[in-house]
């Protein structure tokens, strides 16, 4: 019998919301500067552009480091803490470097009813990593995620911006193999 474990234990002692540093300042490419200027015309306030600007930044720089947060805050005349709060609130802004392929397996009710728990085990075993981790070659990151509005293909996952499913233990293994081939 497995003793009950406090689900909170894994986050005790950590920083409130850890964000890693890239070690260098960032600046939008000329194209994104243009896109950013256009973006501002779509909203009556600068602050409203926080989410889309972060999206652009994540697209260009890969993830939202402390430098990215400071840059976005500066562009939008906001205190960096505001942008930091926003980054911490939403699940899709990465605060650390991610693998080339980000697998986010749904562990909400419909996917779990259809065997998502087994799929998670298969993924962990196949990739040799746990949730919140990236394979040593930097190719694949694994996370769990809440309902992605694709319960008709449960159990399913999101891989970057694609949806994949329904998985069986066999097909999820093949899926990982395909990703590895794609990444070569």
């Amino acid at each position: 019998m497995q003793p009950y474990q406090n689900p909170n234990l894994d986050i005790a002692g950590r920083d409130a919301c850890p964000v890693e540093s890239m070690g260098h300042a960032v600046r939008f490419s000329d194209e994104n500067q243009k896109r950013f200027a256009e973006l501002l015309t779509r909203y009556p306030t600068k602050q409203a552009a926080v989410l889309p600007t972060l999206w652009m930044a994540q697209e260009e720089f890969g993830w939202c480091s402390t430098e990215v947060i400071e840059y976005v805050a500066e562009l939008l005349d906001l205190p960096p803490s505001h942008v930091y709060g926003v980054v911490s609130f939403y699940t899709m802004y990465y605060r650390r470097p991610m693998g080339k392929y980000h697998i986010q397996l749904c562990t909400n009710i419909s996917c779990m009813l259809m065997g998502g728990e087994t799929i998670l085990e298969c993924l962990r075993e196949k990739l040799g990593i746990g949730l919140g981790e990236t394979t040593p070659d930097g190719l694949i990151s694994l996370d769990e995620v809440e309902c992605l509005a694709a319960c008709d293909i449960a159990p399913m996952c999101q891989m970057n911006d694609e949806y994949h499913g329904p998985f069986t233990p066999e097909s999820v293994g093949q899926f990982v193999d395909q990703l590895r081939a794609r990444g070569k």
Binding site: T45, K46, Q47, A48, L51, L78, Y90, T91
Partner: peptide, 20 residues
């Protein structure tokens, strides 16, 4: 950017304004 609560109409409004 990933938050269920933004489906609540005033949560959505706050988010659209660039906040949590």
């Amino acid at each position: 950017a990933g938050a269920y609560i933004c489906g609540e109409e005033t949560g959505l409004i706050e988010s659209l304004e660039g906040k949590k």
